[in-house]
Design a protein around this nucleic acid. Structure first.
Lengths: 217, 217
DNA sequence: GTCTATACAAGGATAGAC
DNA sequence: GTCTATCCTTGTATAGAC
């Protein structure tokens, strides 16, 4: 890996785990084995490092979601891939950073900080959320047209609900260590699907029950 | 308000909106109209201010939830009061801080930072989440015994799901400004209740439909 | 491309006067 | 209880040698 990429990766690691302000350039340089002044050869400021880091995260996540997106699949599968895609991305980020897989990294924190403090980054982040909401809405619209979802569903509201359920899961599991993300994500998606799908009541209910009780958290 | 309380309130305001590290004692002192050295007469360090601020938030939230808690009410109402209680608390915090009501303040961010950086605060915060989960579980257990909830429900998993749905809503609405919390919270609670209650399918379904379409976000 | 040296500012914290 | 003065450390950033 090039020094430039390495600097960015290590910066991101500390920004995400310790916060932007608490991270110092010396810390980053030390870990790589260079002097902090060398960072300025590649990046014009600490703020620049933050922006590049956020852009990296967003692009990586979009790539991940594009990769798993497949409109030919059933709505259930598409949504599941989306749901799992975001969670996996968080877990992978955790690995990139040197933590456990299955330990979620909370990217919302750095997004919020950057958005409130740097006007021009705020734009990037809002577009990111627009993108996520739109992707979910797209899946829901098609699913509803195909009759796979409840006809009464308002897909705007539902998209927000789905996104907030995913984000909530990440946030909670990153703070409250007693929750094991990997062991509950399956059932939580099952519950989500149950609540929006035009289910065959009898069949699905028994299915749900099985999943529910077979899992431990 | 006493100078001591005022310092704490203003500190909290900045810790929550700008982050702990980005907040300076001069900033706090300036807003109150004192010198920063005077802060040390009341608090022994900036870290002390953080701890006291977090304790204040947690106690206030517990008070709010205790106030609305009433086991004699129906499970639906109890859960709704809990759900709304947390959201209202966030909105009230926003007001305390000088922002709009209906603009959620993300207390998770400061909790996470404090928990990862200061071991002894981590304990306080974990107890707080224990408390929240227990409260929800209590309501669910009674509700299930009374036959108001789906018999297949695993209340441990469900409690986590409920909490993560609430937190997710707060986080999303605090970052993504296009979401208006006040206009969607009602329907999101209705959806939540729908998914866990032992519903009379026909009756509830039409009810749900009405709520769903009458609301705009 | 990486280093040493250094400028400059700001933050937390303490001492002691009033 | 609040202030002034000051200490000490650390952070970002730049200049310029190699």
């Amino acid at each position: 890996m090039s020094t430039k990429d390495n600097i960015l990766k290590v910066s991101l690691k500390y920004f995400l785990t310790q916060g932007y302000d608490h991270t110092t350039l010396s810390q980053i340089a030390d870990e790589i084995g260079i002097k902090k002044s060398s960072i300025y050869y590649y990046y014009k400021s600490k703020e620049d490092l933050l922006l590049k880091g956020i852009e990296l995260i967003i692009n990586e996540l979009k790539n991940t979601l594009t990769k798993v997106s497949d409109p030919s699949k059933s709505t259930k599968e598409q949504l599941e891939n989306f749901f799992e895609g975001i969670l996996d991305f968080n877990s992978n980020l955790s690995v990139l950073i040197g933590n456990d897989f299955n330990e979620a990294i909370n990217i919302e924190t750095i997004f919020q900080m950057a958005a409130t403090r740097f006007e021009y980054i705020s734009k990037t982040i809002n577009e990111y959320y627009d993108y996520l909401i739109e992707e979910i809405e797209k899946i829901l619209k098609i699913g509803q047209a195909r009759g796979e979802l409840k006809p009464s569903l308002d897909y705007k509201t539902t998209a927000i609900e789905i996104l907030s359920r995913i984000e909530g899961l990440i946030v909670i599991s990153s703070i409250y260590k007693k929750i094991n993300l990997s062991s509950i994500r399956g059932i939580l998606y099952a519950n989500l699907w149950m609540s929006i799908s035009k289910q065959n009541q009898n069949k699905k209910k028994s299915n749900y029950k099985t999943i529910d009780l077979s899992r431990k958290w």
